[in-house]
Design a protein around this nucleic acid. Structure first.
Lengths: 387, 387
DNA sequence: TAAGTTTGGTTAGCGTCTAAACTAAGTACA
DNA sequence: TGTACTTAGTTTAGACGCTAACCAAACTTA
């Protein structure tokens, strides 16, 4: 067969239909995909053999023979996403149906910047192995494992530069893949914001969106036409250093970063503890809720500058919606009004762009990492082989 | 046949191979595409029947039976691109082999902004009809016609907003398509910078690039992973209005636009004639070549600010190369040194990003518009039907 | 001239799809 | 209760388009 594996493509069509439309009978699948009923029977039979689908009870219809509902079978496979941040590692696993199997956090004793990359890699490997072992004990095959990292990650899984973690030119994929002792297991390392955007894409069912994350630095994950923007080397969405104006002008991170915001809003806060921004951000939210004028002013100011950054992304990538991720989501209530006004004022496009808070929390990138492997199967790349 | 038309895909594979690798024998095509020799024979036979390919003399080999070279047959089809600017319309036609059949310019008597959209549409229709008639007189079928317009163009071919032309919510596709009296002819209206980027992609054989055009306003055409960035509505690459900083800060266009540059570099220049920037830009180049200190300073300043804008694009989209289009290309010699330094200073990525001058001239978007229809055929969408 | 090499076409067979007929399993209603 | 109707899913026949293997044609080399 030449360049299109017809069978794999059509198997993937069925999987995607079930993932987006939920349980359906064979006849319903045939009707909505345009495939022939006989073809759907053949395809679903294969997928059931591979334990990617299973029959659930009869789907009650009004009249005529009731159909047999088919659903994604989550039970035989798992996909793992790891997310590395300055203060901790998160591990998340999904079954093939997309249900969460585990969500673990492991705090760094000392920031990876201080402890050196060796310690961090050991911790990542340990968590990856524990997660893989756990899901295997449940009788699942691991479809793949993706590690989400802030900064610049190339296609070979080397972290070229991560200011947040203090890493440069660090091969992360190699050691982790080697430690898992399963050569055919797909292990990838990828940009955290792009993976977060992938997760938002699936949740929002929106093919053009931008996610802004602010855990350390500011990074954007950009999904255009359904796919994360990859670029020549994978180094997309680096908006923290944007400047415009005379030399030495403040960067977008200076103007709208979470850490600068915290420093302005909480002048007396313990500087040391800013490695983990979570508590500080919560404190800012508490003060904002209590009506603290200084904190509210700082939030408005940050929202305004953030809006200028979002306007740039809106003008360049034309998303249908911009989502505020992680710490920005926590503060979204106070950031969105000024940010959205700023976006509206700096974009030519009619109808503007919605700015909304992400609902995925701080582990969106881990989720996206796991989802990327379900996505791979859903697109006919590496459907697990039958024994 | 399910979702993948195997035949169309493989026909397209052969066409793309010939377009990128030049004349090849059937055996060579089979060897480099991985298709079976028998399949290639069958595919090329169909393509020859459709007059998309033809046999050219024997290709001399070292040893063994000489092969019959196959080439793209340009003679039976044409694709037309129109480019609308503030001062003129350009029409360009390509044959199927990509050779230029005609390149016409038609100056606007008065700028479309002043004369109103009706006059401009009439002129566009007239030029489109003349071009279509001309290529039909040569016995060619018209594969399609694309109109490149600066500003925001939606997918239905309505110009939502074009400050450069003074248009808003103007249906351009409808009147032009209607006037051509061939209902099956594909007529599209698209963003000029994205089409220019498409042309640069084909010329440079580079799948990740950005083109910056400055005819009126500043717009970027962005090709990522081989495809022009489209976004939710098609409104990508609008970088002219970027600002960062306090309200009322100058925009990127103020700081790095071609018209502001000309006004700074040629203080005494006739303000009226700036509708057509060409002569003014040439004059700037002449003065720069003669060593005029003021002009050189203005160019450095523009290059520096332009570089900040390019850095934003480099950080967001990670192109392998950034190309300076139209008027920026004319002045590239003086802009690139400062611009490239600024890009290097504002990007995290190692290896930086090359900044080079486009070689396609002022009608790059018209070329891209025509190329888009060859591209359509090369991807198996709407291969012309056999009679 | 004979042997070797490469091209391009022919033939047989296989995978996968579609259309149509058929069986299965329910509801509607006299 | 039984017959007609409706919808689901399987079976069968056939078409399409690919591949592998074989073969004739056309050239080089010795």
């Amino acid at each position: 067969m030449g360049f299109t594996d017809v069978r794999a493509t059509n198997l993937a069509v069925v999987l995607r239909h079930l993932r987006t439309s939920g349980p359906s009978s064979r006849a319903a699948i045939a009707a909505s995909t345009g495939l022939n009923k006989a073809t759907v029977s053949s395809l679903t039979s294969d997928l059931i053999d591979q334990r990617l689908l299973r029959e659930t009870g009869a789907s009650g219809n009004r009249i005529g023979r009731p159909g047999t509902a088919l659903t994604l079978d989550g039970s035989a496979y798992a996909a793992i996403g790891l997310q590395v941040a300055a203060d901790r590692i998160t591990a998340l696993a999904l079954d093939f149906a997309g249900d969460q199997l585990l969500l673990w956090h492991r705090a760094f004793a000392s920031p990876p910047e201080a402890a050196g990359p060796g310690r961090a890699i050991s911790a990542i490997i340990a968590l990856a192995q524990r997660a893989a072992t756990r899901v295997r004990q449940q009788g699942r095959s691991v479809l793949g494992l993706t590690i989400a990292v802030p900064g610049l990650v190339d296609d070979r899984g080397t972290v070229r530069l991560s200011p947040a973690l203090g890493w440069s030119d660090l091969d992360l994929r190699g050691p982790v893949a080697g430690s898992l002792r399963q050569p055919d297991l797909v292990v990838t390392v990828s940009h955290q914001a792009s993976l977060a955007a992938l997760a938002e894409r699936d949740r929002a069912a929106e093919d053009n969106l931008v996610v802004v994350t602010g855990a350390a630095g500011i990074e954007a994950g950009i999904v255009v036409d359904g796919r994360p923007l990859h670029g020549a080397r994978g180094f997309t969405g680096q908006i923290g250093r944007l400047t415009l104006g005379p030399a030495g002008s403040p960067t977008l991170h200076d103007l709208a970063g979470v850490e600068p915001l915290v420093r302005r809003a909480l002048p007396g806060f313990d500087t040391e503890s800013l490695a983990d921004l979570g508590p500080a951000v919560e404190q800012v939210a508490v003060l904002a809720r209590s009506g603290d004028a200084g904190v509210l002013a700082a939030l408005r100011d940050t929202g305004r500058h953030l809006g200028q950054g979002l306007a740039i992304l809106a003008n360049v990538a034309d998303p249908a919606v911009i989502m505020l991720g992680d710490h920005y989501a926590t503060l979204a209530e106070w950031l969105i009004p000024t940010a959205e006004a700023e976006v509206a004022g700096h974009t030519l496009a009619p109808d503007g762009v919605r700015v909304v808070a992400s609902e995925l929390g701080l582990h969106a990138a881990a989720l996206g990492g796991a989802l990327s492997h379900l996505d791979r199967v859903d697109h006919g790349r590496s459907i697990p082989v039958t024994a």
